[in-house]
């Protein structure tokens, strides 16, 4: 009966091998990175996130954005990501140290979002896109996130945060307006914060073209 312990040790050792390499090593090496101070502004790279953006990460996770959108720019040596303007430089481990859950993703059914805050700067566009994707991008197959918005009767003055430029069949009936919930605002704040365009020692920005 003394074969059993030996077999168990063998089985556990082979497994521990990969556990050390793919779990313990990254835990030690990547799990304790520090932001890099920016000498010009006194800030840090990657910049700190606003409270709304942190809350937005939760909305991003709860609604499964990750199943269609990745958040990573692969290096030019391995892909055409940079030529396709997914981002100005490859993303590195330090880029993700502000995220509670890291949304690297494995699908690009929709475009990569690692730098969506650089491409889309207008919160109203993002709100319209979330409310009814096909109102701004006719060929989009993204589901509508109408449930993150409230349709309400206009009381006196229209709300300052109501969605603008909703047209056609997506427009609310006269006398009504569409306003984002806290979740929608948080999600948009998070998307706007996604900008990996700062230099890091291990990933400098390419020289200006």
């Amino acid at each position: 009966m003394n074969k059993l312990p030996l077999f168990v040790i063998g089985v556990l050792c082979t497994f521990a091998f990969s556990w050390l390499g793919l779990v313990v090593y990254p835990f030690v090496k990547l799990g304790h990175l520090e932001p890099v101070p920016d000498e010009e502004t006194g800030g840090y790279f990657p910049p700190t996130l606003s409270g709304a953006a942190v809350a937005g990460q939760q909305v991003y996770a709860a609604n499964g954005c990750i199943y269609c959108h990745s958040q990573q720019v692969r290096p030019a040596s391995l892909s055409t990501d940079i030529a396709k303007e997914v981002g100005p430089r490859r993303t590195v481990a330090r880029d993700y140290l502000r995220e509670r859950t890291v949304f690297l993703g494995t699908m690009r059914t929709g475009p990569d979002l690692a730098n969506v805050g650089l491409r889309k700067t207008d919160p109203n566009w993002l709100h319209r896109h979330l409310y009814e994707p096909r109102s701004v991008t006719p060929w989009s197959i993204m589901p509508s996130y109408r449930y993150l918005y409230k349709m309400q009767k206009i009381q006196g003055q229209p709300s300052a945060n109501a969605l603008r430029e909703l047209s056609g069949r997506h427009a609310p009936e006269p006398g009504y307006e569409v306003v984002p919930t806290d979740d929608a605002n948080a999600l948009v704040a998070y998307l706007l914060s996604l900008k990996r365009n700062y230099p890091l020692p291990e990933a400098p920005l390419p020289a200006a073209k």
């Binding site: 074969k3 030996l6 077999f7 063998g10 521990a16 091998f17 050390l20 090593y25």
Partner: peptide, 22 residues
């Protein structure tokens, strides 16, 4: 870490040899 990995793969190999021998 790397020492551990080496030791582990070594002992796995020894276990394999042992099971062949026994």
């Amino acid at each position: 870490i790397f020492g551990g990995m080496l030791a582990l793969s070594g002992s796995a190999f020894v276990a394999f040899c042992w099971s062949v021998c026994n």
